[in-house]
């Protein structure tokens, strides 16, 4: 459903993304891996419109969404989380959830009018939000400020928020990083459950156990382009992939000596 075709993005002399192509099939969980600086997050930013590519295309259901504004891409059904958690910390968990939902009453004039449907819609949103919060075990925290949640809870909330917009495609930037083993298990189960529900997921992750456990397909990036693609088992043995990871280590060591 998502096709990334020959994307290029250079920042000055840095070739952050350099001709990257891959595909995400509907209903699949796809992992995007690669050494630090391989351009994974930049690819996310290019897909979601936060950065415009120099060249190349992003297709969603064969519709060209390249260079669209982020809010429009979100409305096309692409939802994302960030590497550094981005919530609205001084708003409640419930408000955070409701903001992600479709709401025509956010229109200036409609929101100023005392409409009966508006109240009904708000009530429905609260209901839906609570259901999703139950799904991620945050129901009890609905009135807490998002900024006061623990790190793991914030990660769950960010995921729940991303789900609240009922996306076709979910982009998760390092969902497993920095969380304790219990939370990791929770997140793993959550993703499996989402897959059962027919959601499509693309995620960036460094935790290889997590990737191997959950991904249907792995795309490996290095130096801004994809160097391998396939099921987790095969990727583990791919020579180019191993080179990419080990090669980087050597390079870094050399630089340190200088």
């Amino acid at each position: 459903m998502l096709k990334v075709k020959k994307l290029y993005k250079h920042f000055g002399g840095v070739k952050a993304v350099d001709g990257c192509s891959f595909e995400v099939e509907k209903g699949a969980i796809v992992a995007l891996i690669g050494p630090n600086g391989a351009g994974k997050t930049t690819v996310f930013n290019l897909i979601t419109g936060f950065i415009e590519p120099d060249k190349g295309k992003v297709l969603l259901y064969n519709k060209d969404i390249t260079g669209m504004a982020p809010y429009r891409i979100s409305k096309e059904g692409v939802s994302r989380t960030f590497q550094i958690i981005r919530l609205f910390p001084k708003m409640t968990v419930l408000e955070n959830m409701m903001l992600s939902m479709q709401n025509v009453y956010e229109n200036f004039w409609l929101s100023m009018l005392p409409l009966k449907q508006k109240k009904l819609h708000e009530a429905k949103m609260v209901n839906d939000a609570l259901e999703l919060l139950k799904f991620v075990d945050l129901e009890g925290k609905k009135n807490a400020l998002a900024g006061n949640l623990s790190y793991g809870q914030q990660k769950l909330l960010e995921m729940a928020k991303a789900l609240a917009s009922e996306p076709e495609l979910l982009l998760l930037d390092e969902p497993a990083s920095g969380v304790n083993p219990t939370m990791l298990k929770k997140i793993t189960n959550l993703l499996k459950e989402l897959k059962k529900k027919g959601k499509t997921i693309l995620f960036v992750e460094h935790n290889m156990d997590f990737v191997m456990k959950i991904a249907d397909k792995v795309v490996v990036m290095d130096g801004g382009e994809e160097i391998a693609e396939g099921p987790p088992k095969k990727i583990q043995k791919n020579k180019r992939v191993l080179d990419a990871y080990l090669g980087k280590v050597i390079k870094i060591k050399r630089r340190k000596k200088k």
Binding site: P70, S79, F82, R86, F88, L99, S165
Partner: peptide
Amino acid sequence: IVKSPFGRVLRAIREDEIAAQAIGKN
């Protein structure tokens, strides 16, 4: 304005423009 759903989006934008864009706010 501030208390309405419109205002809720405004507060969200004030807290984090990027997150607001990511959830489809123009």
